[in-house]
């Protein structure tokens, strides 16, 4: 790495950006090139001619359903994971818990938000699967959840599984946000006659809201792009858009690779929209909480 730096001229300031060449070269090769080639080939047929057939093909069943399922499951887990994560961060900030719990909570959250993929799927099979631990305990208590129609390999089951990494991620981001609220704001509100509830209603919560919504968008993207957990848990049983794309790549269905590119493009667009929203909200939050 030292060579990169030392080849950059010291005095000719117009050339100092050369120090960034390796980084941008990497970005072009392994981020930009793959994504633009997907983009371009979304508008081509198998012979390389321009076509909109792949884009219009996105409206054909089961593709819209797949997008819709992915969006729903991402939204549901982002909202509920967001609420649970925020409530946990808020409870932590309320200061009524034993002292040792404070650092432990954050380590827990860091571990859980990274504990996704195949292992997470296995853990939930062993917990809420047909012979899972919690299923058995509840059955012992007279509550047969499978008898009520619960199924781990369903929308609800996958949502519960995703929640396992969603709420800790929210917690992890909200803790510093809540700690970023200045003590003086609370005191000023109190001094002006506000109760604790009024402070949270009119000052604390509104100040956190952009950051809460931004983080929920992050959770949305987190679930929307997830493939490994869903694949390991349900195989192909839930038609998420990521599962569909995986099937296209494997050549399992349709065998129209260009349609697969268009599906991937659609995903990138949805992710981009949520990232733009995230950046916008984050900017408001930074302006307020600076």
């Amino acid at each position: 790495m030292a060579t990169t730096i030392s080849t950059a001229p010291r005095r000719h300031f117009s050339w100092v950006w050369l120090g960034l060449t390796p980084f941008f070269l990497f970005a072009i090769l392994f981020i930009l090139l793959p994504s633009t080639s997907l983009f371009i080939d979304s508008f081509r047929d198998g012979q390389g001619n321009f076509t909109l057939a792949n884009i219009t093909g996105l409206t054909q069943s089961p593709i819209p359903e797949s997008y819709w399922l992915s969006i729903r499951i991402s939204a549901v887990t982002a909202i509920f994971g967001g609420i649970l994560g925020f409530l946990l961060a808020y409870s932590r900030a309320s200061g009524n818990l034993p002292r040792w719990l404070y650092p432990v909570t954050l380590t827990f959250a860091a571990v859980a938000s990274n504990f996704a993929g195949v292992t997470l799927a296995f853990a939930f099979v062993n917990t809420l699967g047909r012979t899972g631990f919690v299923t058995a305990v509840l059955k012992g208590l007279g509550l047969d959840i499978y008898g009520f129609g619960f199924n781990l390999y369903s929308f609800l089951g996958l949502s519960l599984t995703y929640m396992y990494f969603q709420f800790p991620l929210m917690l992890l981001i909200m803790v510093p946000a809540i700690e970023g609220l200045k003590k003086e704001w609370r005191e000023a509100a109190e001094n002006l006659g506000a109760s604790t509830f009024q402070y949270w209603l009119r000052v604390g919560f509104p100040l956190l809201l952009p950051s809460i919504l931004a983080t929920m968008l992050l959770l949305f993207g987190n679930a929307f792009g997830a493939y490994a957990t869903a694949f390991a848990l349900t195989g192909g049983r839930l038609n998420l858009i990521t599962i569909q794309i995986g099937a296209q790549m494997r050549g399992d269905v349709l065998h129209n690779v260009n349609l697969g590119y268009a599906m991937a493009l659609g995903m990138v667009l949805i992710m981009a929209v949520s990232l733009v929203g995230y950046t916008y909200l984050q900017r408001i939050s930074e302006r307020w909480l600076r």
Binding site: A188, E190, L192, G193, S195, L207, R287, W288
Partner: peptide, 27 residues
């Protein structure tokens, strides 16, 4: 403190960033 009817001005102003000037004064 919220029952004392004492006004306080802080070193760091402590204005509520989510409210405009009028809403801050009227809080």
């Amino acid at each position: 403190p919220n029952q004392r009817n004492i006004g306080m001005v802080f070193q760091s102003y402590a204005l509520f960033p989510n409210m405009n000037v009028a809403d801050n004064i009227g809080f």
